[in-house]
Design a binder for these strands. Structure first.
Lengths: 210, 210
DNA sequence: TATCTTTGACCGACCGTTCAATCAAAAACG
DNA sequence: CGTTTTTGATTGAACGGTCGGTCAAAGATA
């Protein structure tokens, strides 16, 4: 039998790191950062409390790792090939994809809503230079600003085809906040959305804002 | 000087209870339930930690008191005279009033979003029979269901005046989630809403959904 | 003095984190 | 191959610190 290579060890190590992340994501997103204890995470991951600290140097380090992993995953599945400006088709695809992501990454969004809304936790993370979040190599804040501009331009461009009392800022606010509201409800109370309406709402959003 | 009557004592007591509530509301809503300590609240209220427990029997009791007070205040300012069904004017007024309430009771809404989204805190409160929340004498859940029905009926009634592909359920979901999204953004990042757009958005909501 | 209010030292519980001790398995040895 | 040594993943008791909550005692009042 061949001896285990160090690569295989590394793989097992990664498996365990991943396992811890998965368990921690569930607990953080369900109970919040403060209310989740390292002991609970360890117990549910089937390891001892002490071992946690071989893989992550602190509770916050673990949280940052989870967030970074999810940001990467989301960025990957977004496959953003828009180099400059948004076409109506791209706009439509964005809506479809973002709802799919809400569905697939529900746990992560729960975490985001809980942690980001908890003053002190996020601020502390932002202060730590090891934990500056990046999306596709770009700092998170920069990426958000870039996306904001993309959509803002899209709604400004629509002004030409719409009536004279069309206000792009109001329209964009209406759109982004509707999305936000659906995200919130779907993430925390998905039972309110039978699959039928999930699809219908995507259609409606496209019809009203494309 | 006349001796203090017991009524006056009671009044002072109420003042202090109110002071504690105000300070606690600020801390709970800014930092969350777990991250807020009794010591901090006491210090900012200018009293000792021990005295807190003369007025509230626990940290959770204090939280429940705050929520109940705010629910009452909101219910009062709502002045709900709809006995049966909603007219378009009443619908319009509802939008105006709810935005006004977001503005006036921002701290309370922050608290609600933070605490209610924190599994464990709310569940624990709901289990305590002393802390079942009521709105205008009605249990909170019952009141929510009643309001839901009111709006649901409103959108169903609109079906007659709208086109054949008008779906009241989708329309109501669009409306309520847009409201939710604006609430969230306005409560946690009001700097994104210059007063100008605050008004414009109310108008737009009325135009689109009345 | 008698009564009521207020204090803050104190308690037990629990938290995140550390680290000496353990031990199965890999490596080295003969 | 059998035996010994080394390794490093794993454990869990222990630590320092903080929290919610208590209570004997000091202070205020009348």
């Amino acid at each position: 039998m061949s001896p285990r290579s160090s690569a295989q060890f590394e793989e097992m190590r990664e498996d365990k790191k991943t396992l811890i992340m998965n368990v921690a994501l569930e607990h953080f997103s369900d109970y919040g950062f403060h209310a989740t204890t390292i002991s609970h995470i360890a117990k549910h991951a089937g390891i001892s409390k002490g071992l946690m600290y071989n893989y992550y140097k602190s509770k916050e380090d673990l949280l940052a790792a989870i967030i970074n992993r999810s940001l990467d995953e989301i960025y990957q599945s977004f496959n953003p090939d828009h180099d400059s400006s948004l076409t109506p088709d791209e706009f439509e695809n964005f809506i479809k994809r973002i709802f799919a992501i809400f569905r697939e990454k529900r746990q992560f969004w729960k975490l985001i809503y809980r942690v980001m809304l908890q003053r002190g936790v996020y601020e502390h993370l932002s202060d730590d230079p090891d934990a500056t979040f990046t999306v596709g190599g770009m700092p998170l804040m920069e990426y958000s600003a870039y996306m904001g501009k993309l959509f803002s331009d899209y709604f400004i461009r629509k002004k030409e085809t719409e009536g004279p009392d069309y206000d792009p800022v109001t329209e964009m606010l209406m759109f982004s906040n509707t999305l936000k509201g659906f995200a919130l409800t779907y993430i925390f109370a998905p039972e309110q959305y039978p699959d039928l309406y999930f699809e219908k709402i995507i259609e409606t959003l496209i019809r009203k804002y494309r």
